[in-house]
Design a protein around this nucleic acid. Structure first.
Lengths: 214, 214
DNA sequence: CCATGTGAAAGTCTTCACAGCG
DNA sequence: CGCTGTGAAGACTTTCACATGG
């Protein structure tokens, strides 16, 4: 893990892990870079480059041993530790994310929701994730060992919330609010902008109509 | 709109529009590329390049006229038409997306939810989006002029669902299911992989610990 | 022989630096 | 003068092509 790994690469590693899980369940023993490439519509050399960052994971003439590669990538991605995650904002989106089965399946533990509304605090999501007052964030985060926060609050309060999260000692934030957020350089902020995603489709449709392509 | 516009560029255009809306509300008349750059942590030249794709939108020595640039970008992104959107999958995530205020605010109309479960069909989301049987997709899509579908179903049914969507004549798809989906070349598929996003944070935390950076 | 690992080439995106124009 | 628009340079990412080794 010497040189700098790009986010493009790490995102693809996640995809590889998921597919390796499937292969392992099916009892497949080895897989080649070209099979992986076919699965994801990528170039085989790119996949080998991605994996070669982490040492000689493959076997020449054979490919990659599914179980070994899977274990290796899980360790690299830190998925061998059941990270504790909290969701800030118990609105529709926050509640949906708290109960999203994909997070659990990949080894995350959603341990708490936070909100400011009195009538929500003390309640639970459908799958039983408890809603705390945001003021309890620091304490609960410490107690539960929360290392990742997911922000699902309205744009107007997002900056305030992210600051609270950072003050509570959380260094990794997944943000679903629109708009720019500022975090210290030692905090990793990843934003998913739902509106931008939809608008890129709108652009595609507009440009198809006007004769471009998109 | 001659040469090919990259998705990086169109994604940023969405951000610019949102900020221009704010500026316009505040009564700001003009804005320079360096102010925009500061807002988003980007390089000013990049912003000028993004905008220059679409003609000479700026005024030398002055900057960009907020109202004009906003209108121009909205037209480019196709946001001047209130596109009709449907959500496939009335689970937690689908319902949350159907009621997500950000979509409406940016000019989209969420006109229908679709599901296969009898007990859901005929119900409505909190804000009153009706749930139809997926079998009605073609008819409702045609009647309501739906041009964008959002996929929020479990991974196992996603490929089947996306095929149904394409058969109904919808050419733009926003996918929230994990895993690779195949669509014809004239269909634009944009995927948001929630698990990959969380895992990139996990990688960051793991690499910080092991002395790298991430 | 076969598939990996990897320099070199190609392609893409961003930044620099400055000419051009209101 | 100030800020846009842009050619050229630089940085980053992907693909090619092949040497390497089980």
């Amino acid at each position: 893990m010497r040189d700098e790994i790009s986010e493009h690469t790490t995102n693809r590693l996640s995809l590889y892990v998921r597919f390796l899980n499937e292969l392992d369940e099916k009892g497949v023993r080895t897989v080649s870079s070209s099979v992986l490439a076919g699965q994801f519509g990528l170039n085989a050399a790119l996949i080998r480059k991605d994996l070669a960052h982490f040492g000689d994971l493959g076997v020449r003439g054979v490919g990659y041993v599914v179980k070994d590669l899977r274990r290796e990538l899980q360790a690299i991605l830190g998925l061998d530790r059941k990270l504790a995650v909290s969701i800030i904002g118990a609105g529709n989106l926050g509640l949906a994310l708290a109960d999203y089965p994909g997070f659990r399946r990949e080894g995350f533990r959603i341990v708490a929701l936070f909100d400011t509304l009195r009538e929500k605090v003390g309640q639970e999501s459908r799958t039983g994730v408890r809603i705390y007052d945001i003021q309890e964030l620091r304490e609960v985060a410490h107690r539960e060992g929360i290392t990742i926060a997911v922000i699902a609050v309205p744009a107007a309060s997002a900056q305030q919330v992210v600051s609270t999260v950072v003050e509570a000692g959380i260094r990794a934030v997944l943000n679903f609010s629109p708009g720019a957020l500022r975090v210290p350089p030692d905090v990793k902020l990843k934003s998913v902008d739902l509106t931008v995603s939809l608008e890129s489709l709108s652009f595609y449709l507009a440009s198809v109509e006007s004769g471009g392509r998109g």
